[in-house]
Structures are given as structure tokens and as C-alpha cells.
């Protein structure tokens, strides 16, 4: 049968930062072809295609079931595969090899994680489930 793509609206302007991305302006209507787990969605806008940050998109017709998983306060063990220095005060600074507990997997690719007593955002792209090969 025909593939029915989900339609989203851009909530803000987004400028491309790398080759395979797609620039959008607030109000643009895009079709989402694929959603990566790390917050990048492959979209189609007229005749252009490319990756757009999920954080910049909102559903046109609110989906019946919530897209985002509920938080898991027990935490899921993940290993840091790429270090990152916090840019905003609600983010964490962590080094490669450290382990963290993932509490909430958000669609925009910034997950809520806990390290000892501190909780904050960290890019899901820089983490890997403990015990899994990359």
C-alpha cells in the first residue's frame, strides 16, 4: 500500500550546519521519512530532503499515543562513548568510559541521565547501552 508519511510543522527557523541537513523556516510543513533515536529526523520539504532536529518540529494533528517514553526513575545503565562538556547549566559534563543511568529518553536526542547524585541532559548520540557492541 502507499507509505503514509507523518506530517510535522517547524516551530522555529533552523540553519543547516552540515551537508546532509535540511534548513527549515518556522511554519514549514515537512513529511518525516525516518526518525533516528538521536534526535535527527529525515524529512522532505517540497523537492528537498535532509535531516532536521526533532526539537524543531511539532506534530500537525496531535498523535493519539504520546510519542515519548515515560521516565524510568530506576535508570537504565549506559556507557559514555564520546565525552562532552556542558554548554548549558542543565547539561552534564562527562568523559568517555564513564557509566550513567538513563532516566528519560526524549525525542530531541538529549536524554535525562543521572551520574551519582547529579541529573542533567546529555546527547544520546554519545552514549551506548551497557553490554552492547557499537
Amino acid at each position: 500500500g502507499p507509505i503514509i508519511l507523518q506530517t510535522y510543522r517547524a516551530i522555529a527557523d533552523y540553519e543547516k550546519n552540515s551537508k546532509n541537513e535540511l534548513a527549515v523556516s518556522a511554519g514549514d510543513i515537512v513529511d518525516v521519512v525516518e526518525k533516528s533515536e538521536h534526535g535527527w529526523w529525515f524529512c522532505q520539504l517540497k523537492n528537498k530532503r535532509g535531516w532536521v532536529p526533532a526539537a524543531y518540529l511539532e506534530p500537525i494533528d496531535s498523535p493519539d499515543e504520546p510519542e515519548e517514553a515515560d521516565p524510568n526513575y530506576e535508570g537504565e545503565l549506559y556507557i559514555i562513548i564520546t565525552g562532552y562538556t556542558a554548554d548549558q547549566d542543565d547539561e552534564l559534563t562527562l568523559k568517555e568510559g564513564e557509566s550513567v543511568e538513563v532516566i528519560h529518553k526524549l525525542l530531541d536526542g538529549w536524554w535525562v541521565v543521572r551520574k551519582d547524585e547529579t541529573t542533567g541532559y546529555y546527547p544520546s548520540m554519545y552514549m551506548q547501552k551497557s553490554g552492547e557492541k557499537s
Binding site: 516551530i11 533552523y14 538521536h38 524543531y56 538529549w110 541532559y121 554519545y126
Partner: peptide, 20 residues
């Protein structure tokens, strides 16, 4: 064809998203 996703993480949500 779906191109390779960017290597860097996406930006944090824009202010417009946080107003919600």
C-alpha cells in the same frame, strides 16, 4: 535514499519549544 545522519548531536530545543 536516506543520507547519513549528521555526526554531531542536534541542537537543544529552541526557546519556542520551551514556551509550551
Amino acid at each position: 535514499t536516506i543520507k547519513r545522519p549528521p555526526e554531531n548531536p542536534p541542537p537543544r530545543p529552541p526557546p519556542e519549544a520551551r514556551k509550551k
